[in-house]
Design a protein around this nucleic acid. Structure first.
Length: 505
RNA sequence: GGCCCCAUCGUCUAGCCCGGCCUAGGACACCAGGUUUUCAUCCUGGCGACAGGGGUUCGAAUCCCCUUGGGGUCACCA
C-alpha cells in the first residue's frame, strides 16, 4: 500500500447542490483534524459536476459554514494552491485527457446505448430479479464502427471496462473490504454531452492533487471498488480509505429532513454555539477517551485518529445536543454570550442595536439572569421579552398565572406588599436589603414564601420561573415594578379569561 | 431482491485489535431525594446493555462460524 511516511493530504469535497449537511460538516471536521494531527494538508474541492443543481450560492454558503465552525483549509477554490483550480468543472481538460488515455488503452469504451434502452434493460432485469447492470452490448464495438457512428452524429457515453477478478482495499475504519468485480457495473465515466461523472472525476482530481487519504461517508463504500479499479487502470497509487459511519435520524435511517434539521445552517439559526456543534459532531462516531464529553477542537486535534472512529451508525440525539449546547452557554463569559445572543434579540424585535449599546450594562445583567436557563442563543428572546414589555401588557404564561391564583389571598397579599415595596424603594433600599426585608415581611405575616413570590413573579415577569425576583426588580426599576404590580392587582382580581367548564383544579 | 457494511444500557459511547484487571465504565434522557422565592443550575442516589445460537479456550463483551436484526447501495446525482 502507500507509504505512511508520505506527507498527508486529505480533502473535503462537497457538492454545491444544497446547504451543508451536518454529516458533511462532520466529515470535513474529521478530515481536517486528521490533517492537523498528522501535520498534513487539508484541501477543499468543490464537486460541481452536476451542473443542473450546483449553484454559486450554495458554494458560498458551504464555505461560510465550514469557516464558521473554525475549519480552515490550506488549499481551496478561494485561497488557491499548487493544484489549482479547486473547482471540478474548471478541471475538465484534465478529465478529458484521462478519459482519452483510458479509451486508448481499452480500459474504457464508447457506448451508444440510449437511455431508453438502458431503462428497458433495467426493467427486465428487475422483473427477472437479476442484478441490475449494463449488459456490455457496446463493449465489443470495433474502432471503425465507433468512428463511423460518431461521424454519423451519434454521441456515446464512455464506460469503464471492469476487468475480471476481485477488488480489495483496506478501510481504516472497517478493515479489509473485498468486492467481486462481477458485482461492479461497467459504469459511465463520461456523459454523452462530454461532461464527466463524479466517480471518474473524483479519482482524476485526487490523483492530480496528491490525495493520500480519502475519508468520507459510508454511502460511498460501494463506489470504492470502481475507483480503486480506475486507479489501477491508470497505474496510479491507490490512496487509503476510511468510510465514516452514517449519521442517522431518530428512525434509524440516514439523517434526512423527515426526522429533523439536517443543515448546519439550521442549527446556526437556532442559536447553537458553534463550539457545541463541533464538540457534539465529534461524539457522533468518535470518543476522546470514553469519559470526557466536553472538549475543544485543540483536544480533538491532539487525540484524533481515524482508527478510533466507530463502525456503526449513530442516531442523532437532539436531547444530548441541547444539553451540550447548554454546557457551553453556561461556561461562556457574559460579554461573549450577550454578543452571541444579540442578533436573536434584534431579530425578535425586542430592541434595536442602538438600545442594546446604550444600555449595555443593563443588557448584560439581563443575559446574566438567564445564562443558566437557556441552552441556545435562540431561547433567550422569549425568556427576556418581559423586560421590554409595557408595564400594563406583560404576557402571563398559563402556568405563571395559575401559580399566582392558587395562592390564597394572592391579591390582598400583593396589594399589601405593594405598599411595603413602594415605601422601601422610596427609602432607597439596595437589592440585597429588599430581598432580606421582603423575607422578613413575609415571615412577619405568617405566610409561606410562595404566597407572595408566586403572584409577584407573575406580575413582574409573567413567567412561572426565572431569576431571583429582586434582581428582576433591579432590572425593571422600582417604578416599573410598582406599575406591574398595580396591573396585576386588577388582572388577578378578575376571573381568569381561560377558565374551563370544569372549574379550577 | 443482489452486493456491501454494521450489532455493548432508550440514545451517544468506553472496553474488543493484544481473551482474564468487567460483579461491563462514563454521558444524555428518565425516576427519586437535597439545595432554592420559582424555573433552571448544582449535588446525591436509582433504573438500565454485551441480539440469539454454536464453537475455540482453564477462561470470551473481547477470537471463529451460523442465524436474526438494522443500515447503505444498485442514475448519462454526488
Amino acid at each position: 500500500m502507500s507509504d505512511s511516511t508520505k506527507p498527508v493530504r486529505v480533502r473535503f469535497a462537497p457538492s454545491p447542490t444544497g446547504r451543508l449537511h451536518i454529516g458533511g460538516a462532520r466529515t470535513a471536521l474529521f478530515n481536517w483534524a486528521y490533517a492537523r494531527r498528522r501535520g498534513g494538508k487539508f484541501l477543499l474541492r468543490i464537486e460541481d459536476t452536476d451542473r443542473e443543481r450546483s449553484t454559486d450560492e450554495y458554494e458560498r454558503a458551504i464555505l461560510e459554514g465550514l469557516r464558521w465552525l473554525g475549519i480552515n483549509w490550506d488549499e481551496g477554490p478561494d485561497v488557491g494552491g499548487p493544484c489549482a483550480p479547486y473547482r471540478q468543472t474548471e478541471r475538465i481538460d484534465r478529465h478529458r485527457a484521462y478519459a482519452a488515455r483510458l479509451l486508448e488503452q481499452g480500459a474504457a469504451y464508447a457506448c451508444f446505448c440510449s437511455s431508453a434502452r438502458l431503462e428497458e434493460l433495467r426493467q427486465t432485469q428487475s422483473a427477472r430479479k437479476e442484478q441490475q447492470a449494463y449488459d456490455r452490448k457496446c463493449a465489443g464495438l470495433s474502432a471503425a464502427e465507433v468512428q463511423a457512428r460518431r461521424a454519423a452524429g451519434e454521441q456515446p457515453v464512455v464506460r469503464f471496462r471492469v476487468p475480471e477478478g476481485s477488488t480489495r482495499f483496506v478501510d481504516h475504519v472497517r478493515g479489509e473490504v473485498v468486492f467481486d468485480n462481477k458485482e461492479v457495473d461497467d459504469w459511465i465515466m463520461v456523459r454523452a454531452d462530454g461532461l464527466p461523472i463524479y466517480n471518474f472525476v473524483v479519482v482524476c482530481d485526487d490523483i492530480d492533487m496528491g490525495i493520500t487519504h480519502v475519508f468520507r461517508g459510508e454511502e460511498h463504500l460501494v463506489n470504492t471498488p470502481k475507483q480503486v479499479l480506475l486507479y489501477q487502470a491508470l497505474g496510479e497509487a491507490v490512496p487509503e480509505f476510511g468510510h465514516l459511519p452514517l449519521m442517522l435520524g431518530s428512525d434509524g435511517k440516514k439523517l434526512s429532513k423527515r426526522t429533523g434539521d439536517t443543515a448546519l445552517q439550521d442549527y446556526q439559526e437556532r442559536g447553537y454555539p458553534k463550539e457545541a456543534i463541533v464538540n457534539f459532531l465529534c461524539l457522533q462516531g468518535w470518543a476522546l477517551n470514553g469519559t470526557t464529553e466536553i472538549f475543544s477542537t485543540d483536544e480533538l486535534v491532539a487525540h484524533f485518529d481515524i482508527k478510533d472512529v466507530t463502525k456503526a451508525g449513530a442516531i442523532f440525539d437532539l436531547d444530548k445536543f441541547q444539553w451540550m449546547a447548554g454546557e457551553y452557554i453556561r461556561k461562556d463569559s457574559i460579554e461573549h454570550l450577550a454578543d452571541m445572543c444579540a442578533p436573536f434579540v434584534l431579530r425578535a424585535g425586542l430592541a434595536t442595536e442602538a438600545l442594546l449599546q446604550q444600555r449595555r450594562a443593563w443588557y448584560l445583567d439581563v443575559v446574566r439572569g438567564e445564562q443558566e436557563r437557556i441552552r441556545t442563543y435562540g431561547e433567550l428572546p422569549a425568556r427576556i421579552a418581559y423586560c421590554f414589555a409595557k408595564d400594563d401588557a406583560v404576557v402571563y404564561e398559563p402556568d405563571a398565572e395559575k401559580n399566582a391564583r392558587k395562592q390564597a389571598a394572592a391579591v390582598e397579599t400583593l396589594g399589601a406588599y405593594r405598599s411595603w415595596l413602594a415605601d422601601s424603594l422610596g427609602r432607597g433600599l439596595s437589592t440585597a436589603e429588599l430581598r432580606e426585608g421582603t423575607k422578613a415581611w413575609v415571615g412577619a405575616r405568617g405566610l409561606k414564601m410562595p404566597a407572595l413570590f408566586q403572584p409577584l413573579r407573575c406580575a413582574l415577569t409573567g413567567h412561572a420561573g426565572g431569576p431571583d425576583l429582586f434582581d428582576v426588580i433591579a432590572l425593571l426599576g422600582g417604578e416599573s415594578a410598582l406599575a406591574r404590580i398595580d396591573a396585576a392587582l386588577s388582572r388577578l382580581a378578575s376571573k381568569p379569561a381561560t377558565e374551563g367548564a370544569q372549574g379550577p383544579d
